[in-house]
């Protein structure tokens, strides 16, 4: 069986399993978020009520959109202060067996914003920077809360479509509590136990020094007193020979963090190598489960949408649209990687898959996973807003690297992050029906709600904010010395590294082309700002639309109403998403991965 056939079978099986989970999980999410009694509320109802009593929350009190938005914003910014404090003060806090010092101010700022925004961009090497308290109480807690925040926004927007003649869209505190208590915590607990059973580390022990079988001699890079790498006159790193007979094995509460990292589409690794590390992702079973966990909630929310608006077909249409966007791009990524590097082919390097080798481009890939599992993971982690990695994205072929970048640039709708995917694609649906309304000369409607000037202004704020911060951030970085100083590779690939970084930050993904050194104050601050604006400004616009739609009366369906549950609407939605994505980003992509691809045959 050829690698291509194996990959198609893997992808098909994977997607079938995901789609089979959509209805039961999506229905369950609708039940818990609408407060319908089920086994979960019977088990956890008393605890939920206790949380409300302790926090002084009136669960029956509904919020207008602006109150909902301010509650969300305030809660998230307080989370940022908490994470910042934990990182800065970790030297004085418990559960830090390696005695790591406090994290630098700019890195703490970047990390705090990164984790409250569900981005999990990591400008630090986790296992050599963070103690266990910072990882658990800081980062893992935000993994739950940022995921719950995204789902809460999605549910509030869906209520906007489902309700009519009301000013309220729900209660943020109740949505946050129910989502965390009944969805994220139970699924994470189950997944963490399975991961731990498979060998993912879960302990509070200090790092272990193991004696290696052979004594290793290596070149150790030298640093100055400030910790900056030393380079010689030619710009090459200054090194000194060193030998070692031991290897340090990092430990920690990994499984519990790994579960929510994937389920909440967060992506921040306990270790720097993320899911390529054998303690995060030790077996084929964990690889498949982690890939599955990234997708399952994001897709299930399409059914939740259909259920809550009273027409399941509306949800299936969104799911089909997401799949039509995702499948060709993941096939392109696989093909680009399996095809290998034409420069190597010219030098007669054998890149054909055989029983003895994976073939293709194996640079930057974990040999345990090979090309198929790496390409699938890269597309899943960027089609969702997870950003976890099991291979080095910087080492992907130009078209292989184009795919993750473009999946993010499509505004993370294939299927997007938990919550963010569904509310983002609904914004494109609003745009799509408006364009269709202009074409046929009728007032646009979606799910019985008239889409008018106000909704279009708000949808424009939603859709344009992210490209604005991504492209402005990229432009500033390539025009300044501070920005150019981080580039690891010259030419088009260096531009790709910067474009990828701001694309990842603005779309709250978190993956990176690792060649970019983004640990400087410039990148920590600029990427921090990009992540914050890219997250909260669109959320505010989405909630404003929810408030506006909830107030509207439902328009009866007539013969002139455009159906939004058929192939025509799928085409319209695809057109809107691709039109915006392509028009916005192709000029920038042409300077990065596209020109890299075109230069390959010439040997560059």
């Amino acid at each position: 069986m050829s690698p291509e056939t194996r990959f198609v079978l893997l992808l098909a099986l994977f997607l079938v399993v995901i789609v089979l989970c959509v209805k039961p999980l999506g229905g369950y999410i609708a039940d818990i978020m609408e407060g319908r009694p089920n086994f979960a509320s019977r088990l956890g109802g008393r605890f939920e009520a206790l949380i409300y009593r302790i926090c002084g929350i009136e669960p029956g009190r509904e919020m207008a959109w602006s109150e909902y938005a301010i509650a969300l914003l305030l809660f998230n910014i307080l989370g940022a202060f908490l994470v910042y404090g934990l990182l800065r003060l970790q030297a004085f806090l418990p559960l830090n067996p390696q005695k790591f010092p406090g994290v630098g101010g700019d890195t703490a700022f970047n990390t705090a914003v990164s984790f409250i925004t569900n981005t999990n961009w990591q400008s630090y090497s986790a296992e050599s920077t963070l103690g266990y308290l910072a990882q658990m109480a800081g980062l893992a807690v935000q993994n739950f809360l940022s995921a719950a925040t995204g789902i809460a926004v999605a549910i509030a927007l869906i209520r906007g479509f489902a309700r009519h003649g009301t000013k309220t869209i729900g209660n943020f505190w109740v949505d946050l509590t129910r989502c965390t208590l009944y969805l994220l915590l139970p699924l994470s607990l189950i997944l963490a136990l399975v991961l731990a059973a498979q060998g993912v580390v879960q302990n509070f022990a200090g790092y272990k020094d193991a004696a290696t079988i052979e004594t290793l001699t290596y070149q150790n890079p030298k640093s100055d007193a400030a910790g900056h790498p030393l380079v010689d006159a030619a710009g090459n790193p200054v090194t000194e020979a060193a030998t070692t007979g031991t290897q340090t094995l990092p430990m920690g509460p990994v499984a519990s963090q790994e579960a929510i990292k994937e389920l909440g589409t967060n992506g921040g690794g306990f270790f720097n190598a993320n899911s390529a590390h054998p303690y995060e992702n030790p077996t084929a079973v964990t690889g498949i489960l982690e890939t599955f966990a990234m997708f399952v909630i994001a897709f299930a929310l399409t059914y939740t949408f259909g259920r809550m608006v009273g027409d399941a077909r509306q949800g299936w249409v969104l799911l089909i649209t997401m799949l039509i966007l995702f499948v060709p791009l993941v096939l392109l990524a696989f093909q680009a990687e399996q095809h290998g590097n034409p420069v190597f082919a010219r030098d007669s390097v054998d890149q054909i898959a055989s029983a003895a080798q994976a073939g293709g481009n194996m640079e930057g890939k974990e040999t345990r996973f090979g090309i198929a599992a790496s390409a699938l993971w890269a597309a899943v982690a960027t089609g969702t807003s997870t950003g976890a990695v099991n291979s080095a994205h910087d080492s992907l072929m130009p078209l292989g690297g184009f795919v993750p970048m473009f999946l993010m640039q499509l505004a993370e709708v294939a299927p997007g992050g938990v919550g963010t995917g569904i509310y983002s694609i609904l914004m494109f649906a609003v745009l799509g029906v408006f364009i269709a309304g202009l074409m046929i000369g009728r007032t646009p409607e979606y799910l019985g709600k008239k889409i008018e000037t106000l909704e279009m202004k708000l949808a424009s704020v939603f859709i344009l904010t992210t490209p604005f911060v991504v492209l402005i951030g990229t432009a500033v970085a390539v025009l300044t010395e501070a920005g150019k100083a981080g580039i690891g590779n010259p030419g088009a690939h260096g531009f790709s590294e910067i474009l990828y970084a701001f694309t990842s930050a603005g779309n709250n993904n978190g993956s990176a082309f690792g060649g970019l050194t983004a640990t400087s104050v410039f990148y920590n601050v600029s990427i921090g700002l990009t992540m914050f604006i890219g997250r909260y400004w669109p959320i505010m616009a989405a909630l404003a639309i929810a408030g506006s739609l909830a107030q509207k009366k439902r328009v009866p369906v007539t013969e002139g109403t455009m159906p939004t549950h058929g192939p025509l609407f799928v085409a319209l939605l695809l057109g809107s998403i691709l039109l915006i994505g392509v028009l916005t980003y192709v000029p920038a992509l042409a300077l990065g991965p596209i020109v890299e691809h075109l230069m390959l045959p010439a040997g560059h």
Binding site: W65, L73, I77, G105, L454, F532, Y536, A544
Partner: peptide, 30 residues
């Protein structure tokens, strides 16, 4: 240094809060 980064966080909150206010005004505009 901490004051600077905490101030940036407060500034980001303030600007986003102002956006909520502006969008609400937009909604209530005739």
């Amino acid at each position: 240094m901490d004051a600077l980064y905490l101030l940036i966080l407060v500034g980001l909150y303030a600007v986003t809060h102002a956006l909520v206010w502006a969008l609400d005004r937009l909604r209530n505009a005739p």
